[in-house]
Design a protein around this nucleic acid. Sequence first.
DNA 1: CCTTGGCACTCCCGCGTTTCGAGTGCCAGT
DNA 2: ACTGGCACTCGAAACGCGGGAGTGCCAAGG
Lengths: 360, 360
Amino acid sequence: MPSVESPALGTGVDVERGWVRVLDERKLDVLRAIVEDYVATHEPVGSKSLVDRHNLGVSPATVRNDMAALEEEGYITQPHTSAGRIPTDAGYRLFVDKLSTVKTLSPAEKKAISSFLAGAVDLDDVVRRTVRLLAQITRQVAIVQYPTLIRSSVRHVEVVTMTPRRLLLVLITSTGRVEQRIVETQHDVDEHLIADLRSRMNTALVGQRLTDAATSLANVTETFPPSDRPLVAAIVTSLLEAFSDDGEQRIAVGGAANLTRYGDDFERNVKPVLEALEEHVILLKLLGEATHPQTLTVRIGHENPYEELATTSVVATAYGSKSEALATLGIVGPTHMDYPSTMGAVRAVARYVSQILADS
Amino acid sequence: MPSVESPALGTGVDVERGWVRVLDERKLDVLRAIVEDYVATHEPVGSKSLVDRHNLGVSPATVRNDMAALEEEGYITQPHTSAGRIPTDAGYRLFVDKLSTVKTLSPAEKKAISSFLAGAVDLDDVVRRTVRLLAQITRQVAIVQYPTLIRSSVRHVEVVTMTPRRLLLVLITSTGRVEQRIVETQHDVDEHLIADLRSRMNTALVGQRLTDAATSLANVTETFPPSDRPLVAAIVTSLLEAFSDDGEQRIAVGGAANLTRYGDDFERNVKPVLEALEEHVILLKLLGEATHPQTLTVRIGHENPYEELATTSVVATAYGSKSEALATLGIVGPTHMDYPSTMGAVRAVARYVSQILADS
DNA sequence: CCTTGGCACTCCCGCGTTTCGAGTGCCAGT
DNA sequence: ACTGGCACTCGAAACGCGGGAGTGCCAAGG
């Protein structure tokens, strides 16, 4: 109810400041009621049922007038003449921005989250559990991006010979992420050379930011005699590739079964989402740039960059340390979702994941 | 057409040997035609359209008689009186076993598969690409199990200190799979001890089968003085856990968007599959035990172990070396799928993955 | 000027009815 | 054993028809 900078109401002054102009407090109450009811029932809501279910102290007729105004302003619409109203994207936007507060979770839920995440056994497991958790709480499709490499530093580099001509490079970052690369070599490799390379790379790289590692690696290369250069070069190239694979960010998805709750209109609601889930590039765009942790990003309907997902909303946020975002996570669901609860859940999960990753 | 041990037909002798008893060759032709048409159109197929589309040299009336017999035997059924026939699970079973041959892929397709897989950069990538490929070719939901740990041996064990009280264990297996475990310790760890432990574990373990590793590890533990035992024990325990995590087999899934092609009957066809995809345990059961590579397992409708998936079939096979199965892969789709093509694709992909993994 | 009850109007939705036609089963004829 | 003919069945689509929820507007009252 609060958080609305209540306009000078009832005066009729034409303030010319966007929505403030016509929308007095009660109209906003009506809008909120409409959103809440529609989210609950998924059916157009009429003036009569509105006054029944919420105790606004006015008659249906009055509400109708307000509704007409709200429709005029573009916040609600009717699917057809003489039906109830449903919120437009703009309506949801106003609701999210001004008419609702993010719902906090119950202590029991918080407890459940933190204990579930605490059981994780490695970074992969953290991410998997997070996806599962998020999907379960929000009952939507959950998306979690793996911690980006770009902000982390090198913890350890390992070179393992698989077969005489096949090496496995393993890169361990400060965030616990493990990257692997296979390198095929032209000639059989000398085990001593490998050991040498391994130790030199580690002394040169450990503690370095991944972004700075390139130059250090170049230096390492130069310390080797020309005869060994081809092999070293191959390995270094592969390693650099692993360092900078941010182009191919990894992502985990879960809760697709929740799409079944979309109800009907399979073709328009479910199909595009399922298709998007296959395309991780699209998902990354949907999650958007990681802003600060704590800040929730909400993209409603047509606000998001894909035409096919016009009936879909995205709630996302960054996670990581307080100051630096490691990656983003979020959910996608129908525009008519329960924003306060969903946003609360996303925020809470992001916090607890950050906490787990920051150690415990 | 071939591969049917043609029964002594037309004699009317009651051979009493299952389906051979009544089903002469033409009836089987009819059944095959019905399956093919139904798979193509997804609509009940009648006698008239059958003779139109296939040139069986007989009249609709004759076909009707055959159909009556086939229905009597339980191979086809009609959704309601005076509709066309659709195959039953038993009908598909017979079709798969006796009436069809696995379709081989075109050279172009083979080329595409092998070159797409060859681009993989590590084991994870191989699996991800395989899933994608399989989903794309079969246009079904694809499932790929990660190579099992149980048959592989230890290539390398690495212990990395993340923070003074936090160690990261990395296990690299002969199949290129990398397992990680985080170990929290009670006290700050001594770096020399870690180095010592690392080298002793490697000398003891490298080359060992994972199944045999437990005893070797126990031996290693005993070589340490009692004061270091708690730490060593913690690490060893975690490592053993990583060795035997077969209980929690990893799985990759893809192509869920193909579910949209199921058309209508969302509730019965799509929903249960989506739900199953979330439960990896279920998927593992669906794939079934890895038999030999080369052998295709087909589970049709109610044959698979989940009631909710009674309208779903699974086509799976093992991959790995010729003699030993590393893991399984396969697809799930509606019972009315194109079995010959699907089976061909699954078999081909399995072969190429095996080949890639066996080196190139 | 805002609010309210009243009232006429508009369509969607659900339901029963009808028609249409693909498909079947059976039978008599070759 | 096969085939043409024929009566029958039954779902799917088309049609028609209230009922009812909801609206917009207006005139009256605070």
